[in-house]
């Protein structure tokens, strides 16, 4: 028995080592860092324990800007992408010819490099001295003036960021929703058809309640994902996000840690923990709200 026990632990040893060293220890450490005041990265010394790092971060205009950008991004992209994905998935599951082709095409953004394709978006939207860019060409057909979406007004920059974020997250949502729709028991539809129920009524009374657990799952993961937005913004606006005014909370964490304004793991830790607290709170609210409205079928 003793030997057998040893064998189990032996098989788990690599996993325990990796997880312990790169996950459990850092997790504890990040809390410690966040309370160490005036931590110096070079000499690894600090002056005392306290909540100064938190109050510094909370008063930092760059952090507040990042929080604002992130919240706007979340509030705009999560409902829009989930709604659009639902619409597209319903459309997808109602057709047969070309269905596979559409599914394949729609999934493509999932397997592309966010940084690389973000560059294409930047070029489509950017206005330079040499060209107004493709999107401005489209706008001019409708008589709208050229806008610089990359270095221009805040609303324009936010628009591109939201658009690109939605473009990136759609494949996952469409995939999950399509398989949820396919798994709805056909007998419900057959029964409704016999009763002559209208399409709209079928959708709101059968389809939507049946897939509501999936929708909740997508909304929750969507919130979490959007709160962690970072590389999409880097792809569009470059690494100096503070200068562009388009930083996100995660971006703020990394900038504090590394880069031209970096070298402050304590501030980075405090900001990361604040982010984690925000995400946890929102997720709990989501779960509480959804419990009232979701139908779970066994």
């Amino acid at each position: 028995m003793e030997k057998k026990s040893l064998k189990g632990w032996l098989y788990l040893l690599p996993a325990i080592l990796f997880l312990g060293f790169f996950m459990v220890y850092p997790l504890i450490d990040v809390f410690v860092y966040s309370f160490e005041e005036n931590y110096n990265f070079a000499s690894q010394t600090y002056s005392g324990m306290g909540s100064y790092n938190y109050s510094y971060v909370l008063r930092d205009p760059y952090f507040l800007q990042a929080v604002r950008n992130t919240f706007l991004l979340v509030v705009i992209t999560v409902p829009l992408s989930t709604g659009l994905a639902l619409l597209i998935s319903v459309a997808l599951s109602s057709i047969r010819p070309l269905k596979q082709l559409f599914q394949t095409v729609f999934f493509l953004p999932y397997v592309t490099n966010t940084l690389a394709v973000g560059l294409v978006f930047m070029i489509l939207f950017k206005r330079t001295a040499y060209t107004d860019g493709f999107v401005n060409l489209l706008l001019s057909w409708f008589g709208a003036g050229p806008v610089d979406f990359i270095d221009g007004p805040y609303a324009a920059k936010l628009f591109v960021l939201c658009l690109y974020t939605i473009w990136v997250v759609m494949p996952f949502k469409i995939l999950i929703l399509t398989s949820a729709l396919a798994s709805v028991n056909q007998t419900y539809y057959n029964a409704a058809r016999i009763d002559g129920t209208s399409r709209t009524r079928i959708f709101f009374r059968i389809t939507l309640p049946m897939i509501s657990p999936t929708l909740v799952y997508l909304i929750i993961t969507g919130f979490i994902g959007a709160f962690k937005a970072y590389s999409d913004a880097v792809a569009l606006f470059g690494t100096n996000l503070n200068a562009a005014g388009m930083n996100t909370i995660v971006g703020y964490v990394y900038d504090m840690l590394y880069g031209s304004s970096g070298g402050y793991p304590s501030y980075a830790s405090a900001a990361a923990i604040l982010l984690f607290a925000i995400v946890l709170t929102i997720t709990c609210i989501n779960l509480l709200v959804s419990r009232k409205h979701v139908h779970y079928f066994s």
Partner: peptide
């Protein structure tokens, strides 16, 4: 995001 800071250090 939480563990990356210590890992970097």
């Amino acid at each position: 995001e939480l563990v990356v800071i210590t890992n970097y250090v």
